[in-house]
Amino acid sequence: MSLDTANTTGFAAVDQEELKRARAARRERLGRWLLPLLVMALAVLVWNRVVVWNDIPKYILPGPVLVVSTLIHDAGILFPALLVTLEITLMALAVAVIGGAGLAILFTQNRWIEMSFYPFAVILQVTPVVSIAPLIFIYVDNRLVGLLLCAWLVAFFPVLSNTTLGLRSADHNLRDMFQIYGATRWQRLRYLQIPSALPYFLGGLRIAGGLSLIGAVVAEYVAGTGGIGSGLAFRILEAGYRLNIPRMYAGLLLIALTGVTIFGVLSFLSHLLLHKWHESAVKRET
């Protein structure tokens, strides 16, 4: 009888612990979304109060309400500009992916090519793009090509270095096995190295997504005013000259939102491709 009770309480204790763990997990899931939102809301509220209570003029610090209403009011100017910036960003990202992954494959196929060219990739990466950009715009007539080139310079390196690392990190026993089964170089690349490199590549892609937006914006600043099809950075610059501070904030908000969206989309893509097999995307039971 006493043994029975002991047993039951024993089981109940385990259940309590499991329940506690489940509650904690639920709280954490909720907190992950709720806490940043709360902090954000609080910050916006403080911003609003500071502006209202201190009667700060809008040409020094516009309040959040004014920024949002400017965003809506100036949508006709800002959204076409956003499209231009987005276009350059996505094109640069695409070229960075093709160029970075392509170079990585070339590097891993032939060590001599890697030895010859890798140092130059590093040089291009470590030289600040603002210092190269003016030269690019002198030599390259086409504005779009110039912008693309700048954004690409910033964005391709993480793809290149991560993919190179990934292509090399294929399990050596699997390599031996491919050799024993007489796999061709192409088969080894296709069935072994590229799948092994995928998680690394996707990590690089997430960094490159943010960097290509930065590259596009910086390039626009350097390219300066003038010309049709001007992007967000140009609009912010222009608003600055006119002391239209609310529009500067609205443009800034749009750029930040764009960056967050790109990161979110790429993270989702990474999850889609990896969640079935890769450790980073697998949920553990304990």
Partner: peptide, 8 residues
């Protein structure tokens, strides 16, 4: 090691 391809 089992040496399996984890993605397959």
């Amino acid at each position: 090691e089992p040496t399996l391809m984890p993605w397959a």
